[in-house]
Design a protein around this nucleic acid. Structure first.
Lengths: 200, 200
DNA sequence: GTCTATAAAGCGATAGAC
DNA sequence: GTCTATCGCTTTATAGAC
């Protein structure tokens, strides 16, 4: 009997479709402006069906964040195998986040929304992956500081938070809207100014 | 007859009280999370009274933005008289924005809210002051680039947008929440990393 | 599990008395 | 101009048939 197995796959595929839509809408409009009605219209299902998979809008956002953190961890693994030094690995990750932003794949969550923050910190899958990513990047930061490539006078946490913050840097979108420079040129400038600021 | 004059002053004082509350609430919760009910409760007036002064929530936010832009222009005038070089003046302005953020006086507007953006760009008082501030800072940026104090390879607009973006840099709040460093120390690090990144 | 239909609550904005 | 009371709309979330 593989009939149940097949049905499980269908359900999982539907969940993945939901998360993909949420990810795109979060990147496009942000958490507050995104409505559940838009999500179900985009996926093509009824709202009650969505609520069988996810019990709240916050849980939807958490699932999208888990997904993007997993993609970031995949990228960490990939970059780790390129034979770059610590600074090069961090720069590659920063470039990856800008590319994600350009592709409309970087979900934007409001830092001030308290109910959302509560839901995220209560989500073990989210917290686990966030800590895993922080540990990996934190190790690279300390290594780069030891090599004299990053300013050792800066707390590693400040460097880490700065990299996270730049992943949503609004300057990219504003410069892009200006239309005077190519995407690649803008990303180069942003990566350069970011790391020159953190450098030794 | 100075009775009407007196009444005008009372009305203006009430409007200023409204804008002050809006400014504080925008800095604390952001535009979407701030409700008009909270504003009127904070000011101590009825909602219908507020709508005699401002015709929409967006107009409230615009008034708060005009106020903060005017304070920024005041600071530009003050800093301009200190006898600093161009880089020193820009750094002083960046430090001022961080201080405003620390004091809970830097209103946070979502860049993605379309109705809000439309209301702002339609508000002549807002647009005028934003252009005035951009012109003043832009001139200092070009001057600093000419002096070799800022990287002349960067478009002045990118430098300007970066300074605007850093005025709302979430890294300040996160580092502050960590509780391991003084506010002054954190601001010093942020100003340093920002301008080292933009420097020559 | 998925659908239609609706409940329940919050919010921006306004009517009308004073 | 200010108040109380309320409208009208949006949005999250759920009930119940299939």
């Amino acid at each position: 009997m593989n009939r149940p197995r097949f049905r499980e796959q269908v359900l999982q595929a539907r969940e993945e479709a939901i998360v993909a839509s949420v990810n795109r809408l979060l990147a496009e409009k942000g958490f507050d402006a995104m409505t559940v009605d838009e999500v179900v219209a985009d996926v093509g299902i009824a709202k009650a069906s969505l609520y069988k998979h996810f019990t709240s809008k916050e849980e939807l956002a958490a699932a999208a964040m888990v997904k993007v953190l997993e993609r970031a961890l995949d990228e960490v693994a990939r970059v780790g195998g390129l034979g770059l030094d610590a600074l090069g690995r961090l720069q590659a990750m920063a470039r990856w986040t800008y590319d994600q932003q350009l592709a409309g794949q970087m979900p934007a969550l409001p830092a001030q929304n308290s109910t959302l923050r509560a839901a995220l910190t209560a989500d073990k899958a989210y917290v686990d992956r966030l800590m895993q990513l922080s540990d990996a990047l934190g190790a690279w930061i300390v290594e780069a500081q030891g090599d004299g490539q990053l300013d050792a006078a800066l707390p590693p946490e400040l460097v880490l938070y700065t990299l996270f913050a730049r992943a949503c840097d609004p300057v990219l979108g504003v410069m892009r809207a200006g239309g005077n420079h190519s995407d690649g040129q803008i990303v180069d400038w942003l990566v350069k100014t970011c790391f020159r600021g953190l450098g030794a």
